[in-house]
Design a protein around this nucleic acid. Sequence first.
DNA 1: TAGATTGTTAATCGATTAACAATC
DNA 2: TAGATTGTTAATCGATTAACAATC
Lengths: 238, 238
Amino acid sequence: MSLSRQLSPSRTRDDGRGIPDATVARLPVYHRVLRALGDEGVHTISSDHLAQSCGVSPAKLRKDLSHLGSYGTRGVGYDVALLSYHISRELGLSQPWGVVIVGVGNLGQALVSYRGFASRGFEIVGLLDSHPDVVGKRIAATGVDLIVAPMAELETMVRESGASIGVIATPADAAQKVCDRLVDAGVRSILNFAPAVLVVPDEVEIRKVDLAVELQILAFHEQRRVDDSSHLAQVMNA
Amino acid sequence: MSLSRQLSPSRTRDDGRGIPDATVARLPVYHRVLRALGDEGVHTISSDHLAQSCGVSPAKLRKDLSHLGSYGTRGVGYDVALLSYHISRELGLSQPWGVVIVGVGNLGQALVSYRGFASRGFEIVGLLDSHPDVVGKRIAATGVDLIVAPMAELETMVRESGASIGVIATPADAAQKVCDRLVDAGVRSILNFAPAVLVVPDEVEIRKVDLAVELQILAFHEQRRVDDSSHLAQVMNA
DNA sequence: TAGATTGTTAATCGATTAACAATC
DNA sequence: TAGATTGTTAATCGATTAACAATC
């Protein structure tokens, strides 16, 4: 990946590469808000207003957007449609990405029924599960109905559908094996919902969503609040 | 919250407060891995091995743990049970926290069936939904069965159960109103699964889990890979 | 021109990393 | 004592922020 940068030394700006991770993580939010604004008939918006709608500071928003190029107009603001387009292009939303979901339990089914997939150009191209009760079941996704395939078909499914993103929604103890098979089949983007630390080769991008981690972070702050108020009470009693 | 720090200037170490956010976010992973190691009968582990199991660098792990205190033994490593205990204490897992889930659709039900709640001292104390088809439904959680209550009971439920964490699993357009009601009822820790930017007072800790954001970050990297290899191909053809 | 707002700069802050002295 | 491993230090890196010159 550094190769292409070395090969294109003439580029001035970041130009699509070199966008900070923290910025990339916020672009989807900006994009969603801009789409909503467009639907409401808003054509132009300032960084101050957009930042407020996105829950970030105006400085951060402008800095983030500056990595994409110069798509605002000084004294006026940003054209909602234009900015929305450039963000979606940067995020790779202008082309469809195939998604395979492994594990069709409660969570897997919740993911299938999520409408945010299709509306952003993600297409669920396959569902896999190991449990005989689930295999063969017909699940309604946005647009198409899908039939849950047995795990044995993982490699075939990935290859034939050209899926590029794999979602792991299995129990923790099955996750690493599923991950290995996805990677061997050519998947290099993985979203892991299983509470397990997965090992992947360097070239694979893996992201983890962990309910227990989120709850425990909240518990930490909750406890801190309790501690603080009891300290305060102690001092006030003294 | 800075008050208690001001009031306790004698403390030397971070002492529970002042732990960096990035560290707090990793503690639950360390804790989970340590519990698994304990179950396997491992009594002692070095930072190198534990770091590898947790998917972080040894330097980062030791730095993180140093914020909790000095619970390792030079030349030996960490006592699994002791370290596990101190992390859980720091995270506030030694006391139970009540959780209210608002929105019992596919996702809400997936959350209820998640076993990671009870095993870490979180107790689901209430389920709420606005849809008449769902209200009154009996849902099996770990330990207890719960009956979905109507939204009108939100305030009563929070007050009577003393719930401290609210989980929002509603559609996006309902999320802000639900959030406001939770905060008004006294909830100051919120986990938001709705794809919406929620506004909360400063004293409320809010965390967001956003499937679309995760997918779009993966799409960004996937596209970058494609771009890079086509650049490479161009150059090699030339 | 005057007012508004962007895009960029430079300072600050927080997180990561590597190296190593302390010490079991 | 010799080998192993922690806890800490200092350097580096990346992200955030505030201020403002550029410019519509």
